[in-house]
Structure formats: structure tokens, C-alpha cells
Design a protein around this nucleic acid. Structure first.
Length: 556
RNA sequence: GCGCCUGUAGCUCAGUCGGAUAGAGCAACGGCCUUCUAAGCCGUGGGUCGCAGGUUCGAAUCCUGCCAGGCGUACCA
């Protein structure tokens, strides 16, 4: 509808120009938008105001000329008006909205999809938690955001790949192995001092116990390095398998699991450093190798190879990101925890130094989750190994509630996640509010089939004049009409919460309509038209929930 | 010190590329089930958009400065 009005304006300007009424055929930076207040029409444009300078004419005068040259071949517009400083407001005929409804209904599952992304190849890397412990609630938010962003991008016509980067190399893995080996030694009866920098959680004891079950006390005889390496391998593999399962239970899937170690095995880290050194971007100072990130906007240069010869995490990250672009992605999106925000300038610098544009690299910084229970904060201390895992939360509140709540805020806002609220089956809990729409409509459809003998929804029912004229019905159609744009905007801005808010708006409009009007009305023509309307609402709710990875229940 | 993020109703938050009278939920109060699921709906009150300038037809939105809070600022990962 918006596009059609836009086209009408563009051709009106052209026609007015051809007739000599306007000095230019340009429309400037005009927009067509849905006004906040209903009295300002269904759609409005600021074209007269933005082109006032261009046309050297008063905005209201331009508006008058445009309306004189406006043509409406599809007979969409009931009336127009010029308002305020020069807005042109369009009031759409109710019958035109019925036609829109028919289009939405026919689009079905595909409604909401668009080609806005034009097939741009994008990689979304998210979660990427170190395999040194189970996923906690914060990872859950990152998982929900990353997965949903990927879904939304795909729906908006981008070609998306989802990836998990496994930090399976370096010191933290050795620390993991050391932690397990120490607990293993305890099991074998030796008294050991357990250092603070080792992983404290109970799961380390479980892993040590598994090592004991497999190897008995044999590792005590081995060289310590070898024993630690064995423990590290077993622990990382086991924990990673757990992470995969947790994510699967959370409805998150990845196209690829990428190993950091493989970068070393294939010589990519070395190659990346060599390449940057050859180009003078990596240089030596005080026995270490530094990258000139400060030439690309970072506040200082960063070490890639320490004076002890070991590469930094940054070095493998450079190699990893180079490898991503080499795979053909035009844009790379990383989802990180907000505590890593200081890392953005250097990573952006590295991307640019590697020959890509700055805007080919984007970071979504997901902020903290404050876990609550009935308004009280839940104590979480990673150091003491006391944290609530994602799996615990999913078990307690369910996958749908968890995912939905993670997406009810802009990811740059801290999120209070109340476990009791998430389980509540009231309108305080937004996920039930939205799902309830789907279930309610499913119930109506069942009733229509069983008691009214209307087994199939007839699209043409809405075309009959006089069947869909209630204000609440038009309101529902208008809202649904905006869904593809919501998805496209959410994709362009990487803001999944827009879809969540859209669903809550549509749900509110439906519940209001439901309470005011009976769908299965006595008048058969009206009843059939309304049935088509609510079936379409149900479809749009299902499509939106699908993007969020939340189920749309037939019954609640 | 420097950098990034945040500041909108009592609370939690939306606010489209700069648009018209800044919205929703919660909390408070008052109503609605013999009718398709009350896990729902309807109504009432509530605002110096952190502060001060600037840009322009027009600013919560863009720019500058300041204030407050959070996070970061390793030859850690």
C-alpha cells in the first residue's frame, strides 16, 4: 500500500512538471509514512515540504498542485487533505484494505519475506563460548539474538550463514586440562592445592571422575604434560558436546562449527602475520610483534606475537576474520558480550588492514542479563562456579518463554529476566499473550469446522462489499500490512526486538477485536470474511513467532 | 585520563530516514464472562524526553559542551 501511494506521488510530480506547474521533477528525500494520529489519515507524505527549496515554492502550494495532478488508477484513495505545514494525508478506502488482506492471506507462510537484502552474503557468528564450562544465561541471550538476527536477515532476502567459533586452543584449554587433572589426582587420593585461576565448578569433578573411570590411576604414572593434554581433550570434547545439546534444546542451529586450532594446523595464523609483516602493518618492538591498529582508528597498536614467541588471541582472530572474507562473505557480523566492547576498534582495524571496508564488519554487543526470581536478584558468581546455566533456565521456564523474553529488549539494554514471571501464565508474561492469539484463533477455526461446517477458509469472502468495515478490522489489516517492512527494517538495523514489539502490538489489536466482535457472526457472509481475517492474523503471528524461534501453539 | 554504551511517566521499556498533540506494559483505581479460550478486554489519572546551546519550516531523534550511571582501557582469554 505504501509503495503504491509512493508511486502515485512520484508520477504526480512528474505530471505536474510536464504540465509546467512545477520547476523540477525531483521528489527530494520524501517519505511516505503511517501517521501517529489516525485523524492524519492512513498514509502521509512530506514531499511538499522537503521539495520547497527545490521547487522555490511554498509547501502548501506545491501540495495543492500535486493533488491536482494526482491519479489513482486502482481507486485506493477515499480522500486526501493538505494539513499543517504542508503534509499530504491519504485516507484509504475500506474496500482497498480488503484487497490487501486477500494478498496477505494468499502469501501465507511467505508473508513477511522480502528481497530487501538482494542476496547479500552475510555470516553471523554467535555464542562462540569457550568449551571450558556450560553455557550460562548470558550466552542464552546471545544465542537468541544471534539466531533471530540470522532468521530475520534470511527472511529479508540476505544469504546467511551461522557459525560458532570454538576456542579450542591456547591457555584456557590448558587451564581446563590442569583443573581436571588436579581433581583427578584428588580422586586418586593425593592431596592437592587447587589454585584460584583454575575452573572451580562441580562439573570439573565430574570430568575428572570420567577420566578415572576410563583410565583408572594410570595417568598418575604419565608425564604431567601428557596427562594434562589428555584431560584437556576429554574435557573440551565433553563440554562442547554439552554446549551443542543445550543449543539444540534451545532451538539454535549452526551451519558450521569452526575450530580455532584448525587455523594453526593449517598455518593460517602464521600466514596472516607474515602477510601483514610484508605489508609493513606488523612490526617488531621490544622483542614482540605489533600490529599497527592505531593507523586504523584504534587507540594504540596491539601485540600479535609476544616476546616469548606465543601468538595472542588477537592474532588468531585476525586470521579467522581473514578466512571468513576469503570464503566470500560480503559482511561479517559478530555477536559478543558487552564486556568485550573494548575489542571492537582493534578488530575493525584488523579487518580494514586486511583490505576490507570498515562497514563489512559489524558487532552486536549483547548486554548483561540480570537473573531475578520474584523481583529478587539471583546470585551468580562465575568465580565461585555458581551460575545458573542456560539448560537450567530452559528446563524451568521452557524454551519459548526464554527465547521470547531475551528478545523483548534492545540488545544494548541490560535485561532483567525474572524466572517466576517467565513461568506465569498471565498477561504480565508477553510470550503467552502472543501465543494465546494463535491458540484462540485455532479454537475458532475448529469451532467453525465442527459446528458451522466451514472447513476451509475462503479468500474471496473478504471481497464482498460491506463485510469488513469495522474499525478494528481495518486496524488489524493495516498492522499486518506493515509486517514485511518491520522485518526488513529489523534486518537492516539488526534489531530483532522490532519483530517482538510488532507481535505484541498485533496481539493487542487482535484481543481487542475478539472481545468486541464475534468472528462466527450470524450473517454468514460476515462470518466467512472474519474467519479469513483471523486466519490471516494467525498466519502472521505464526510467521513472526517463527522468526523468533518460538512455537505457535494450536491449544493452550 | 581516554574510549564505548545508557539517560523518555512511580517502575520496566518502545519511539521508523528529523515530522503533526511523545506511546505501551506494570503498578493504582473502576468496570466486562448464559455468547468463538477471562492466559482476555474496556475506562481513568500520570511527562522540564538528564542539563545547556546549535543546525531548520520542524529535534526525544542530528551536532557541540556539560552532568549522572554502567562497562572497557593487558606481551589475558
Amino acid at each position: 500500500m505504501k509503495t503504491k501511494i509512493y508511486q502515485m506521488i512520484v508520477s504526480a510530480v512528474a505530471r505536474a512538471h510536464a504540465a509546467g506547474a512545477l520547476a523540477s521533477a525531483e521528489t527530494g528525500d520524501m517519505v511516505v509514512e503511517i501517521p501517529k494520529t489516525e485523524s492524519h489519515g492512513d498514509l502521509a507524505t512530506n514531499v511538499a515540504m522537503v521539495s520547497a527549496r527545490l521547487q522555490r515554492m511554498a509547501p502548501r502550494r506545491i501540495a495543492e498542485l500535486l493533488l491536482a495532478h494526482l491519479q489513482d488508477p486502482e481507486n485506493l484513495v477515499a480522500r486526501t487533505e493538505i494539513a499543517g505545514p504542508g503534509f499530504i494525508n491519504f485516507f484509504i478506502r475500506p474496500e482497498a484494505w480488503a484487497a490487501v488482506l486477500r494478498d496477505i492471506h494468499l502469501a501465507g507462510e511467505g508473508f513477511g519475506r522480502s528481497q530487501a537484502g538482494r542476496g547479500e552474503r552475510i555470516q553471523v557468528e554467535f555464542v562462540s563460548a569457550n568449551p571450558t564450562g556450560p553455557l550460562h544465561v548470558g550466552h542464552g541471550r546471545g544465542a537468541a539474538v544471534g539466531d533471530t538476527v540470522a532468521n530475520i536477515l534470511a527472511a529479508a532476502g540476505y544469504e546467511v550463514q551461522r557459525e560458532y567459533y570454538i576456542n579450542d586452543s591456547g591457555r584456557q584449554i590448558r587451564t581446563l586440562g590442569r583443573s581436571v587433572f588436579l581433581r583427578y589426582q584428588e580422586i586418586c587420593g593425593r592431596t592437592v592445592e587447587f589454585p584460584e585461576d583454575c575452573y572451580q565448578g562441580d562439573y570439573i569433578r565430574d570430568l575428572a571422575d570420567q577420566m578415572y573411570q576410563t583410565h583408572g590411576a594410570a595417568l598418575m604414572e604419565k608425564d604431567e604434560e601428557a596427562a594434562v593434554a589428555l584431560c584437556a581433550r576429554h574435557a573440551a570434547d565433553t563440554i562442547l558436546a554439552g554446549i551443542r545439546k543445550d543449543l539444540e534444546d534451545f532451538g539454535v542451529r549452526f551451519d558450521r562449527w569452526f575450530s580455532e586450532q584448525s587455523l594453526y594446523d593449517e598455518g593460517r595464523v602464521e600466514a596472516a602475520i607474515d602477510d601483514l609483516t610484508r605489508r609493513g602493518i606488523v612490526y617488531e618492538k621490544e622483542g614482540a610483534q605489533w600490529c599497527r591498529t592505531s593507523d586504523y582508528g584504534d587507540e594504540k597498536d596491539r601485540v600479535v606475537v609476544r616476546n616469548n614467541g606465543l601468538t595472542t588471541y588477537f592474532a588468531s582472530d585476525i586470521a579467522y576474520h581473514q578466512e571468513k572474507y576469503a570464503r566470500g562473505f560480503e559482511r561479517v557480523i559478530d555477536v559478543w558480550g558487552a564486556d568485550h566492547h573494548g575489542y571492537i576498534p582493534r578488530m575493525t582495524a584488523a579487518v580494514e588492514a586486511s583490505g576490507r571496508r570498515r562497514d563489512q564488519f559489524q558487532v552486536i554487543l549483547v548486554h548483561l542479563v540480570n537473573l531475578m526470581r520474584a523481583g529478587q536478584p539471583v546470585a551468580m558468581s562465575t568465580r565461585a562456579g555458581e551460575f545458573v546455566t542456560l539448560a537450567d533456565v530452559v528446563t524451568e521456564v521452557g524454551r519459548d518463554a526464554a527465547r521470547f523474553i531475551f528478545l523483548t529488549r534492545h540488545y544494548e539494554s541490560p535485561l532483567d529476566f525474572d524466572l517466576e514471571l517467565a513461568k506465569q501464565k498471565t498477561n504480565d508474561n508477553p510470550v503467552y499473550y502472543v501465543q494465546y492469539v494463535h491458540a484462540r484463533i485455532a479454537s475458532i477455526l475448529r469451532k467453525a469446522a465442527d459446528e458451522y461446517g466451514i472447513g476451509t477458509v475462503d479468500v474471496e469472502a473478504v471481497a464482498k462489499p460491506g463485510v469488513l468495515e469495522q474499525a478494528e478490522e481495518i486496524q488489524l489489516i493495516k498492522l499486518m500490512n506493515g509486517f514485511p517492512e518491520v522485518v526488513a527494517t529489523a534486518a537492516a538495523s539488526l534489531e530483532p526486538h522490532r519483530v517482538t514489539f510488532f507481535l505484541m502490538d498485533l496481539a493487542a489489536a487482535f484481543h481487542a477485536y475478539y472481545n468486541r466482535h464475534r468472528v462466527l457472526a450470524e450473517d454468514q457472509a460476515i462470518g466467512r470474511a472474519r474467519l479469513c481475517l483471523v486466519r490471516t492474523v494467525q498466519q502472521v503471528i505464526a510467521n513472526g513467532l517463527g522468526l523468533l524461534g518460538v512455537t505457535a501453539p494450536e491449544q493452550m
